[in-house]
Design a protein around this nucleic acid. Structure first.
Lengths: 377, 377
DNA sequence: GACTGTTACTATAGCGCTCAAGTAGGGGTG
DNA sequence: CACCCCTACTTGAGCGCTATAGTAACAGTC
C-alpha cells in the first residue's frame, strides 16, 4: 500500500489526526458546518454539503467516537453480556449464529457489538450499570431469560434501551423478541404423532430457563390434546445429562417410541445412548431436537430439528434493538407526569416462527440424499 | 420541554452525571488533583488521595471513557475481527473457549473486547484501519493466520499494537502466540505408532491456513523418521469434506489403520463414515483429532485429541496483548531513524505446549469410566 | 538571606465534536 | 421600502477528562 506519503503533515504524535477543523479550513466554512454536513443534518446547502463530504473523503477523515460521545451523540455500540460458564459458549451452535446475525445488521448501521462474559447474574447487572453509567453503549441485548429473572427489574430501573431475547412474558416492561416455543413444540409433537408415535418423551434442559418451562407446558398440553402419552424427563443442558436422562427413559416399563431433546448436543448424546443400547434410530426410537445445527445435519441419522434460524433471530434482535435505541433518542425524557407504569403491557414484542426440518432420525426416507438441505438463515 | 423534574440541573440530559469536578468541589481541590488521585499518579499527598477516592466512591463516580479517550488516555478496549462465514463460529468449540479466555484476562484489567464479523480479509483490514483511526481500540488480536497473509503487512503498516494468533513464522514483525503444532503432531503420530500403527492418514483442513501446512510438514517428517507410512488427504474444514475424505481413504488398496483429523467436527464426521462402513473404531481404524471439545469427550468412542486448552490459549493471548499495548504506550514513536525492518526477527513469541488426551478412539482401555476427564483449561 | 530543590498542589489549555443561539443575506409580502 | 421569514451559515460554549505549565510553601545548602 504505502499510504505513508499523502497524509502526514506535521511532526510529532503518532496520529496527526484529521479533524473537522481541517476540513472546515479547506472548505472555507466553520467546523459546525462540517458537522452538519457529514451528519446529514439540515442547515447547509446541498452544494456545500457535497463539497465538504468530498473534502472529508479526500482527507481520509474518520470521526472520533470519543469526541462524539463526549458531545452527547450516540456511541454506536450495543452490548451483550453472557453469564455462563466460559466454555459453554463453544458448544452452542445457536450462539455463534445468533451473534453473526446481530453483527450483520449492526455492522451495516455502523454499530459495533461489545461482549462480556461474566460468571453471575449480579456481575451481569453490574456490567449493565457501568456500561450505561460510562456511556459505553447505547443499548443492550439480554439473553438467557429465566423465570423470575432479577435482571429484568434491574434493567427496568436503569431506564435505558434494552432488548430481551426470550418470552413471551416474564420480560416486564421491556421489549422482547422470542421464538414461539409453543408453536415449535406443536410442530414436533404433531410430526411425531403423525408418524404413529403414541408415547413421546421430552428430555428437558435446565428448568430455570424460561423457554424450558414454556416447552414443558406446551408439550404436556399438546400430548393431552392429541391423546398420546407425554413423558417429561428433566436433565441439565449438557451432553452428559442428556445421556443419563435417555438411559433412564430406557428403564421405564413402557419406554417412549420417540424422544424430543432440548438441544442438538443433547440429541446427539441421547442418540448415542440409544445406538449403544442396540436400539435403532428411528426404527426403535425416533429422535428430534429443538435446536438445529450443522452437527445435527451431518450426523447419521441426521436429526429432525426445529430450524430456529439463529442467524435470522440475531438479525431480528439487532433490528429491534436499533429501533429502540433510536426511539429512546427521540424522547429524551420519558414524561414524568401522568400515571405510573402505564406502558407496562403495551410494549411491542416480536416472535420468530419456528419451522420443522424433517430428517432421518424421525423419518428414514428423509436422509436419502447427502445432506445439502436447508442451511443458513 | 418541561425540564422541571427532580434531578436535572440544566437543559436536557437524562443523567446528571457525576464528574471529577463534583468530586473536586467536595474535596476542596481542583479537578486536576482528582485526576491525579484516581489514576494513581504522583502529585498528590496520600492523605488527599484517599480523601478524594473516598469521595469518588461515595458519589458513585464512574469515569467517562469518552472523555478519557478524547484527552489521550487509552480506551481500554481491544478488538478482534473474524473473517469467516457467519455460522462457522457456532461450530467451533475452539472459538468460544478462546474468547472466554481472552475475556477473563481482559475483564480483570478492566478492558473490553470488541468483536466484528466480516466476510473478507479486505474488510477485516479496513476494520483495523478504522478502529485505529477512530481510536476505538488500543490493540487488536488477529486470528486464523494464513500462509502469505495480506493482513500481516497491513497491520505492520498501521504500526499499532497487534497480536497474531498463530505461527511460528509468517507473522512478519508482529508479535505472536501460537500452539506448537509440530509438537502436537509428534504427540499424535508417536502415540499411534506406539499402539502398533504403521500406516497413518492425516485428513487435513483447508490448506491456506498456516497451521494446516505446519501440521502437514510435521506429519510427513515424523512418519518418515519413524519409518511408517504417512498418507496425506486434503479436505476442507467442514464435516462433509471430512466425510468424503475418509470415504476416499477407504478405497485405497492399503487403507490406513489410523486417521488423524484436523478438528473435532471432522473427526466425528469421519468416525461416522467408518462406523457406517462397518469398520470398528479403534478396532478397525483408530481415530484422533487435533482439536478437543466436549463433543469429542462425550462421543462413543470418545475421541483421542490434542488438548489445546483453548481457554488457556485465550488467556495467554490477552496477557500478551496487554503487554504490547502497555509497551506501545511507553515509546510513542518507534524510532524513525536507523535501518529499516531491523526488529523483524527479534519479536518475542510465545507458544503453548500441546498435550495429548488419550481416549477410546485409539485406545479401548481408555473409555472405561464415564467421561469426567480433563475438562476445562 | 539569596540560592536551588522538593512537594503538593492550581490554572489553563486543549482533545474533536455537537448543539443552541445568533446573524447575514436574499426573497417574498403588504 | 420597511417588514418578516427563510436559508445558510457562524459563534461560542461545553461534554469530562488529561497534561503541561506555573506557583506557593517549606526545607536544605553555602
Amino acid at each position: 500500500m504505502t499510504t505513508s506519503s499523502t497524509s502526514n503533515a506535521r511532526g510529532s504524535g503518532r496520529g496527526q489526526r484529521v479533524t473537522i477543523a481541517d476540513i472546515a479550513r479547506r472548505a472555507g466554512v466553520t467546523s459546525a458546518a462540517v458537522s452538519l454536513a457529514v451528519n446529514g443534518r439540515p442547515g447547509v446547502s446541498d452544494a456545500t454539503r457535497t463539497r465538504i463530504i468530498d473534502i472529508a473523503r479526500e482527507l481520509n477523515w474518520e470521526p472520533s467516537p470519543a469526541a462524539r460521545a463526549l458531545a452527547g451523540a450516540p456511541v454506536l455500540t450495543v452490548g451483550m453480556v453472557l453469564a455462563r460458564p466460559a466454555d459453554v459458549l463453544g458448544n452452542e451452535a445457536f450462539f455463534g449464529a445468533f451473534v453473526a446475525g446481530l453483527q450483520e445488521v449492526l455492522s451495516a448501521q455502523d454499530y459495533s457489538l461489545q461482549m462480556k462474559i461474566v460468571d453471575s447474574p449480579e456481575a451481569e447487572i453490574e456490567t449493565y450499570r457501568r456500561w450505561f453509567a460510562q456511556r459505553r453503549v447505547d443499548g443492550v441485548v439480554m439473553v438467557d431469560l429465566r423465570v423470575d429473572d432479577p435482571r429484568i427489574p434491574a434493567l427496568e430501573d436503569l431506564g435505558q434501551p434494552a432488548l430481551v431475547i426470550g418470552g413471551p412474558g416474564h420480560h416486564g416492561s421491556l421489549p422482547s423478541v422470542y421464538v414461539d416455543d409453543a408453536h415449535a413444540t406443536h410442530l414436533l409433537v404433531d410430526h411425531l404423532v403423525s408418524h404413529g408415535h403414541r408415547r413421546i418423551a421430552r428430555v428437558a434442559g435446565t428448568a430455570e430457563f424460561l423457554h424450558t418451562s414454556e416447552r414443558d407446558q406446551a408439550f404436556l398440553a399438546r400430548c393431552q390434546e392429541l391423546d398420546v402419552d407425554g413423558v417429561l424427563q428433566d436433565a441439565g443442558f449438557g451432553a452428559q445429562d442428556a445421556a443419563v436422562a435417555t438411559a433412564e427413559l430406557l428403564t421405564l416399563a413402557a419406554p417412549p417410541t420417540a424422544i424430543v431433546f432440548d438441544s442438538d448436543e443433547m440429541a446427539l448424546a441421547g442418540t448415542h445412548v440409544l445406538l449403544e443400547s442396540g436400539i435403532e434410530v428411528p426404527g426403535g426410537i425416533a429422535v428430534a431436537s429443538y435446536e438445529d445445527s450443522p452437527l445435527a445435519r451431518t450426523h447419521r441419522p441426521a436429526i429432525t430439528a426445529i430450524g430456529r434460524s439463529a442467524v435470522e433471530y440475531g438479525r431480528l434482535a439487532a433490528t429491534r434493538l436499533l429501533e429502540i435505541v433510536a426511539a429512546g433518542r427521540g424522547r429524551p425524557q420519558p414524561e414524568v407526569t401522568g400515571g405510573a407504569e402505564q406502558t407496562g403491557s403495551s410494549v411491542e414484542v416480536r416472535a420468530i416462527e419456528p419451522i420443522l426440518v424433517v430428517r432421518g432420525s424421525t423419518d428414514p426416507s428423509a436422509d436419502t440424499a447427502p445432506p445439502s438441505g436447508p442451511n443458513r438463515g
